[in-house]
Write a protein that binds this DNA or RNA. Structure first.
Length: 296
DNA sequence: AATTACGACAACCGCTCTAGT
DNA sequence: GACTAGAGCGGTTGTCGTAAT
């Protein structure tokens, strides 16, 4: 048995909204609001429209402070950055762009921005998130020619590589909107690929091409890297490696929790670490005991 | 001038999520 | 916990204007 339709399809008008309909909806909304019920609204407002249609029309076109027209370069950058992190989560992306709707951004991406990016990087395809498994090396190198804009800001514009020290993840986080806190990360702004929060500041982790890299033992493959510029991301959603840095500190995600491989810590040190405030909910990944992966 | 192709954007559809019962 | 209705979301389609042929 299918679900009952939200309205009587035979008796609702479809297609473009007329100025009269717009005026009716706007007037009603300004006087009464939705009343918490979009389905009942059209009848009350004297509109022969589906409630969902009214909602969409209001949210995407009629409500106050909607920005129409060209997207700025800054907005382009933000969309690209967020798309790289969130994929086609248009509502999340829209939340970062005041006055823009998810529909607007979606259309803009599909008609313009995607093509623009494909021109600059032919590996960019479809609406897959910039998930490690679908790595699109250089995806955001289109940002190279500009200084990073909010929300991706970096104070360190040097060529520093990653320095590990006192990396502490607190609480829980998830892959794309993590609230992990950490310190002593140095990034090159143009290498943005992964956005999270560090010390309450939105930042992005770094991924380069990872095509040539070295490890401490002199071997070289795509999973062994020395410098942050050469970070390799692989799938993190099932607890596998998302970031490997310097061979010693590998970061993992599992069910929204950050994990860190602590190869250069002894078990006692790890236990001690587990007892600190920074590591609530710490647990070992049993599948990765050989790597001593802990999740916070 | 007529037709076709294309781009931009509005709107729809169907699904999932969520809150209420 | 199961069920239901409504809200919200993302993918897709429809419509319209304009440029190209």
């Amino acid at each position: 048995m299918g679900r009952a339709p939200c309205c009587d399809k035979a008796n609702v008008k479809k297609g473009p909204w007329s100025p009269e309909e717009d005026a009716k909806l706007k007037e009603y909304m300004e006087k009464h609001g939705t009343g918490g019920n979009w389905i009942a609204l059209p009848q009350k407002a004297g509109l022969k429209r589906c409630g969902k249609s009214c909602r969409l029309r209001w949210l995407n076109y009629l409500r106050p402070n909607i920005k129409h027209g060209q997207f700025s370069d800054d907005e382009d950058r933000i969309i690209c950055s967020l798309f790289a992190s969130f994929g086609s989560r248009w509502s999340i992306i829209a939340a970062h762009l005041p006055g823009r709707t998810d529909n607007d951004i979606k259309n803009y991406w599909n008609t313009k921005l995607k093509k623009k990016m494909m021109l600059m990087n032919p590996s960019v395809k479809g609406n897959k998130p910039h998930h490690p498994q679908h790595q699109q090396p250089n995806l955001l190198t289109i940002l190279q020619n500009s200084t990073p804009a909010s929300p991706l800001s970096f104070s360190d514009n040097s060529n520093s590589y990653y320095h590990h020290a006192n990396v502490s993840f607190t609480g829980s986080s998830n892959l794309w909107t993590g609230n992990a806190s950490a310190s002593n990360f140095n990034f090159q702004p143009q290498d943005i690929t992964f956005m999270g929060h560090i010390q309450n500041q939105p930042v992005s982790m770094v991924a380069g091409e990872a095509s040539s890299c070295s490890s401490s033992d002199g071997s070289c493959n795509n999973n062994q890297i020395t410098h942050i510029k050469e970070t390799e991301f692989v799938d993190g959603r099932d607890g596998t490696l998302i970031q490997q840095v310097g061979g010693a500190h590998n970061y993992y995600l599992n069910n929204g929790l950050w994990g860190e491989s602590l190869l250069d810590y002894g078990m006692d040190e790890i236990k001690q670490l587990a007892s600190t405030d920074n590591c609530s909910n710490l647990f070992f990944d049993e599948k990765k005991t050989e790597e001593r992966v802990v999740y916070y």
